[in-house]
Amino acid sequence: MSDETKTITLTVNGESVTKLVDARTHLVDFLRGELGLTGSHLGCEHGICGACSVRLDGDVVRGCLMLAIQADGASIETVEGLTASGEVADLQENFVERDALQCGFCTPGMLITAAELLREAAPKTREEIREFLSGNYCRCTGYHAIVDAVETTLTQRLEKSS
């Protein structure tokens, strides 16, 4: 009943995947190492930096704070999936335009977190955007440009939907 390894089946970016995993392997090591999805990054492996953020059954979570074996039966989305679906194409475009990324290591986690804010489709102040993103560390940009890019995307979406 208890295992050191187990075969799991899960959906990753819309595709069903079946793999044998070690119980101790966390989700991002699995995504990167077993599936070659290197868009999710490891910055601290103790749940502070947010570089490993992925979507679990629709909600953003820390990928380093979850075992791959726990994802059996779950649906995972990574930045590669969000890119392919076009869900954050406008946000990505605004990131590039506004130079809201430099080294880019935090960017996938930042996008996935921001996508959750955008999904709420409610007006936000810059302070609220900053607060929402406060669990994602960026050493390069100083955050100002990231807040700009998220704010612009939110404004554009709200204008479009109204």
Partner: peptide
Amino acid sequence: LSRASARRTVAGRGRYTDD
């Protein structure tokens, strides 16, 4: 001008050493 390489990294296609 915006950075061409940013289009790659923003899509999760950066290629860092561990990748």
